[in-house]
Amino acid sequence: MIQIGDIVARKSYEYDILFRVIDIKEKEGEKEAILYGEDVRLIADAPFSDLVVIDEREKKKREEKEKQHIEQCYKLLRQDYRLLREKSEYEATGGYEVKMDFFQLPGRVLHIDGDPLYLRKCMQLYERIGVPVYGVHCHETDMPDRIIPLLEQVRPDILVVTGHDAYSKSKGSVDDLKAYRHSKYFVQTVRQARKKIPNLDQLVIFAGACQSHFESLIRAGANFASSPARVNIHALDPVYIVSRVSFTPFMDRVNVWDVLRNTLTGEKGLGGVETRGVLRTGMPFRTIAEQT
């Protein structure tokens, strides 16, 4: 018997995605599970008859494959970061050969996530990369009301608004915002944020989840959003995008393709507009010991 918390896959989709059962309901006499993607930001529902509980062996096999993919993207991101740091060091010292100590202030992130488990995964990766972040778990429907107080409290350079989403063909065309589970709340949240901080370079925004209405999010004022081809995006994709922005000097522009190539989803699931970086470099760097 399927229970809340079980990891399952759908027969009708050839077991392509692993889901976590977060709720169970009864529909027309048949039990139905509400599902959250384990690694993709997708919310779905399925009858019990379409679900198979994944055993530990298969789960570990997929986790190992996923871990390898994440490590590959992480290495690319670290490589880019080293290049950006070398460039910043060269510019900060004016190209002089004499060694000069300097410090860097990467952009601060406010990450609002509709899924507490995804938020935890993202916070771990932010910490590993070295991005300063303030994380908040908030249901998607509550985000528009909470965004302004959070912006005033945290004063971030970068805002992430994400969680779960899904497009339902039965509810309308791909152009109809009403056909999406949470896109309208992401759009409302971005609009509220832009009323507070209109400049796209003063507050860089990533918004959206799996299959989200990309065009509406960009029009609302997001710098980066999902999902241009209405495909699923990986749970960690927002982290890869905003980390690149966080470590790009504020005098440089972030090339959209350079950002997307290090994500787990790519240009079908993510897109954006040309944006300035937010990293600032200063000098001299003085330790506490030197000051005393």
Rank of each mutant, 00 (worst) to 15 (best):
M100A: 13
D101Q: 11
F103T: 12
F103D: 12
P106Q: 07
G107D: 13
G107R: 11
R108A: 07
R108W: 03
V109Q: 02
L110Q: 05
H111F: 11
H111T: 05
I112A: 07
G114H: 05
D115L: 07
D115Y: 05
P116H: 13
R120L: 14
R120H: 13
K121G: 01
K121T: 02
K121E: 10
C122Y: 00
C122S: 14
C122W: 00
M123S: 13
Q124V: 11
L125E: 14
L125I: 12
L125Q: 10
Y126T: 03
E127F: 06
E127N: 10
R128P: 01
R128C: 03
I129A: 05
G130T: 06
P132C: 12
Y134V: 15
Y134W: 05
G135C: 03
V136F: 02
V136P: 01
H137I: 01
C138I: 11
E140V: 03
E140A: 09
E140S: 06
E140R: 02
E140D: 07
T141N: 00
D142F: 01
D142N: 08
D142G: 00
M143D: 00
D145R: 12
I148M: 01
P149F: 08
L151K: 11
E152L: 10
Q153H: 11
L159C: 08
V160C: 12
V161M: 12
V161T: 11
T162P: 02
T162C: 12
G163P: 02
G163Y: 02
H164I: 09
D165Y: 09
A166E: 14
A166D: 15
Y167M: 13
Y167F: 15
S168D: 11
K169P: 01
K169M: 13
G172F: 07
S173P: 03
D175H: 09
K178Q: 15
K178M: 12
K178T: 13
A179H: 02
H182A: 14
S183Q: 06
Y185E: 02
F186T: 03
F186V: 07
V187D: 01
Q188I: 00
Q188P: 00
Q188K: 14
V190Q: 06
V190C: 06
R191W: 00
R191C: 01
R191A: 12
A193K: 08
A193W: 05
A193D: 04
A193S: 08
K195S: 09
K195Y: 06
K196E: 12
K196G: 00
N199K: 09
L200A: 07
L200Y: 09
D201V: 07
I205K: 05
F206W: 04
A207K: 04
